[in-house]
Amino acid sequence: MKYERALIAVAIVVFILVLSYAVTLGAMGSTLPPRDLRLLAKLYLWLAINPWTRNLTVMSPEAVTSIVWDFRGLDTFFETAVLYLAIIGTVAIYRGVYASSKSREVPISEDEVGMSPIAKSVTKITLPIVIAVAVAIALHGHLTPGGGFQGGSTAAVILLLVLVVFSLQYSIRMGITKGSTLALRSAGLLGIAVTSILVLILGLLVGCQSFIFQNQPKAYAPVGVPAFLDGMLVSGTLILFNIFECLAVAAGLTLTFILVLTHEEEIRSVMKGDRHE
């Protein structure tokens, strides 16, 4: 037994050493990217915020967000779609299960369910603090590293903590239900979808050319979302994408947590057909 452990430890060390040696020798290919790739990177940095080339810039000092929600916005849209397909899959598997809908009628006090009062107090104080940080991450997505997805995940973490510490039953009484999170998530997704065709609609209304996922006015499509709002930099569609993505991610992840935390007997009784709503 002892020798076995030592053998495993030695094997891991040897593996890491060999791998890092191989990488240093160039086993993963050349360390330098090809020249034309570097040109692309240069262009991204050049155009992320550039008031002198208004036809090509995103007007956001945060290059990553410019790439994610503008230069390759369509890519991000499908990435988001993949995550939501996974969540939709979860909802579909658990269809008909309305987490502890019976217990909603029975009034329960905070002390009867969940973890210790110490865990509850700490979670209570942390809740507004973490949500404040989450909102700040999302709303500064076009200015500093972060954005809607990161902000939404941060908010989802504290909501998961509430679900676990206060128990699912109590959380449902407080309004964190399958229905409310599903509605919020759908509102967020709808917001993303509308924002992606916002400039297209504007162009149709004005009667000029425009594209999906367009942000700033382009040479042949002179419509766009304003980059400044009363002197404050909002980077056009980027702030809208970040707000809606934050909402959709926070609600979507919380929705899966609720479903995963549902009692197995309840799910089975629904799936067997004993109970349906």
Partner: peptide, 20 residues
Amino acid sequence: LTFIIYIIFSGSVSPYDLLT
């Protein structure tokens, strides 16, 4: 509490930060 945390986390007091 939220306002204070938000401003500390943002690390700036521009009009955009105060408004949001």
